[in-house]
């Protein structure tokens, strides 16, 4: 039943499916591998642990993508190992695994987006720094006053605090992912890429409710309970089925809307921002506006790009949620808001 490397894959499932020894961690692991379509492992020996460690190390050699993060979590998360062994009921390990998958995906997109936002905000900080420095020099030459300087200095501090907050957000989001992945020490120094782009198209709504009713693990468990417990369980099953249908519709609506929002940022807002930036430089060239306006426009653009990153993150979170509503596992509400950088009007003599 165990492969040499301690890794259970879908290949061994045909055999495992015929056994129904619930307490067997290998059966639980196989069930997880089948339902999730990813490899998992039972870590019972040092050799198992070493095999998993090597696989995790190999996966972490490249910038981490979402599917790889899920694979690592399912292989390496010790809470899941505990669930394999504890085996409280037929679906317990599977439900733990599904929770873990959802949590990993959400943590992944949050961590990647937070890192991107923090790095983008450095531009706002550079702009605020240049504004403050120019105002300081302007004041030395007699072209700005204490009020102008105080405004510019305050802006700089506010933007610097935005950057600090964004860096903290990135650290916290990354730690959440690190916990889901079950990593520590040197392995926790993994590299994150940027968010995957929006897909060219999205799923259609038709059939998603039926798919969820068929595929949701909690519904399977509820059906299973009906066989043992009779009428109360039947009512619970009915209630759950109605709830699942609603959850799917809500998740699909969020998925579709977040796609449209992210696409509007990509196709409209960001190109329009480029036009705005360009036109402001033309106005600077014509001495129609001064450098402070140019720098304030940089901060506006940063805000638009941060909003675009957040919108793309929200789409990926909504997609992860939709997956969870179809198959099972805890669902998180779609993230709202995000960092709003300061885009105060340019100080300096206006």
């Amino acid at each position: 039943m165990r492969q040499a490397a301690g890794v259970v894959t879908g290949f061994v499932l045909a055999l495992l499916a015929q056994t129904s020894v619930i307490a067997d961690p290998y059966v639980a692991a196989a069930q997880v591998a089948q339902r999730l379509g990813v490899a998992t492992a039972v870590i019972a020996t040092d050799a198992d642990a070493e095999a998993v460690r090597q696989r995790v190390a190999a996966a972490l050699a490249r910038p981490l993508d979402a599917d790889t993060a899920v694979e690592i979590a399912v292989l390496n998360n010790r809470a899941l190992q505990a669930a394999y062994i504890a085996g409280e009921h037929e679906f317990a390990a599977l439900e733990t695994a599904l929770d873990l998958v959802g949590e990993t995906r959400r943590a992944y997109f949050n961590a990647v987006a937070a890192q991107q936002v923090a790095s983008y905000l450095e531009r706002a900080l550079a702009s605020a720094e240049a504004t403050a420095e120019l105002t300081r020099r302007l004041a030395q030459a007699g072209g700005a006053n204490r009020l102008d300087q105080a405004r510019a200095a305050e802006l700089y501090v506010k933007v610097a605090n935005d950057v600090r907050r964004a860096r903290l957000d990135a650290t916290l989001a990354r730690e959440e992912l690190t916990r889901a992945l079950g990593l520590w020490g040197a392995e926790a120094g993994y590299t994150l890429p940027t968010l995957p782009p929006l897909p060219a198209s999205i799923e259609v709504a038709a059939g998603v409710e039926a798919e969820a009713v068929r595929g949701r693990v909690d519904l399977m468990a509820a059906r299973h309970a009906v066989a043992h417990e009779g009428a109360p369980a039947a009512h619970r099953l009915e209630a759950l089925a109605i709830q699942v249908r609603s959850e799917v519709r809500a998740a699909f609506a969020a998925y579709q809307a977040s796609y449209e929002i992210a696409r509007a940022y990509r196709d409209d807002v960001i190109p329009l921002r480029r036009t705005i930036d360009e036109e402001i430089v033309y106005r600077y060239n014509g001495m129609l506006v001064d450098v402070f306006t140019v720098l304030a426009t940089v901060r506006e653009s940063v805000a638009a790009n941060v909003a675009a990153i957040s919108a793309l993150r929200d789409f990926h979170l909504a997609e992860a949620n939709l997956r969870a509503t179809l198959i099972g596992g805890a669902v998180a509400p779609t993230a709202k808001g995000g960092i709003t950088p300061h885009v105060d009007a340019a100080p300096g003599g206006h």
Binding site: L134, R137, L138, R283, V289
Partner: peptide
Amino acid sequence: NAMGHGLANFIGVQKRDL
């Protein structure tokens, strides 16, 4: 011709290094 009227006066301000 058309020009801004709220521009800061940078006369005497060295900003090449920025």
